[in-house]
Write a protein that binds this DNA or RNA. Structure first.
Lengths: 203, 203
DNA sequence: GTCTATATCGGGATAGAC
DNA sequence: GTCTATCCCGATATAGAC
């Protein structure tokens, strides 16, 4: 059996590599100028290829956006997943700190989630589902804390979940405008400490 | 002295009226599709005039955006300004409730503030200054509360100010995605009640 | 897989008649 | 003040050679 593409390490190897380059540059573009504000030409140029080549790998701009979003999702989850045992509060703070370390990641979600508010936006469904999932996940965490008697009385898990998601996004947006004047982690931490009762062996 | 425009109620009356119409439609467009996603043609059509006429009143798209933002600012402040004596907490909640009653207002600020994160965006300076002003204003309010002993111990006025602004914006964004599942006012109220100690004569 | 060339469309801005 | 017509640009997308 002769292999017509034996010069590559594997079939589609070059394609996969190219796609990754393109996704990386698209991510930078979307994160700074949003979806409407970015052009395929600019992304192609940044990737060092022609517009047509980009379009050979991603048929439409929309397909590229979806790829960027889902790709970043997987990477994002991987960042902190090595520390599964962390309690909720530390888990969130670790995630927030990790996000700040990934250039453009915060901007990507902040800009696109606002741009995609209108239902016609190609990213609308993605963000609608993302918010739902985040709220559900955090609500479960808060509910578990309450079951352990570690939630301040009067705090509603559902409302607290919405609040954490909102606070996180909102403080990140302000941080993008004034990184030196806004401390996203501190704001998040202060809220969680206000809402979660410390364990006995904690200070 | 003959008046060449005596058929109007006053000089520039028609212009002012036209400008207001245009601003109104531009506001709707920017609030749903953002700045980049909206076109002058579409705004002109919605205003019932031609593109050229719109451009006669607003030389550039950027000028139109700035006008929309500052115009809405004045109207927004006017809404609740009749109740100057309200304490901080009620003032914020009243403002939030009022905002929800103005269709598109929340979307306008949410979408544009995220889109304008990049310094090249024509609205960037406006939002940077707006965030600074909001944080300063709220910080002063929290500081005043602390002076009265009505701030929960450990709560930093500056951080609380950032938090309120972030929470407000973030919860509004979620509300735009799922108006039936997110209660912006409740989230804001819950946070403020967590942070502000009730007065003696309050429940 | 990658390119050049081109089609087609829609954007903002301009010129000039009325 | 308002319009039609047009310019010029940049956008996505397509065709087809190599």
């Amino acid at each position: 059996m002769s292999d017509p593409i034996r010069t590559r390490r594997g079939p589609y190897a070059k394609s996969a590599e190219r796609r990754q380059q393109i996704v990386e540059q698209a991510y930078r573009a979307f994160a700074t100028r949003g979806y409407h504000g970015s052009s395929l030409r600019e992304i192609a140029a940044a990737s060092g290829i022609s517009l047509s080549t980009l379009q050979h790998h991603f048929a439409t701009k929309e397909e590229l956006l979806i790829t960027v979003l889902t790709r970043r999702d997987q990477q994002g989850h991987g960042t902190v997943s090595g520390q599964e045992g962390l309690p909720f509060r530390e888990h969130i703070l670790a995630q927030a700190a990790a996000n700040e370390g990934v250039p453009g990641l915060i901007a990507l979600y902040s800009i696109l989630s606002a741009e995609a508010v209108t239902p016609e936006h190609p990213g609308h469904v993605y963000f609608a589902e993302r918010y739902d999932a985040l709220r559900e996940e955090y609500e479960a965490e808060f509910a578990a804390l309450r079951a352990q008697g570690r939630l301040r009385p009067g705090v509603e898990p559902a409302l607290a979940a919405t609040t954490v998601v909102a606070l996180w996004e909102g403080v990140q947006l302000q941080w993008l405008y004034a990184p030196d004047r806004v401390d996203a982690g501190a704001a998040l931490r202060a809220y969680l400490e206000l809402v979660i009762v410390p364990q006995r062996d904690e200070p």
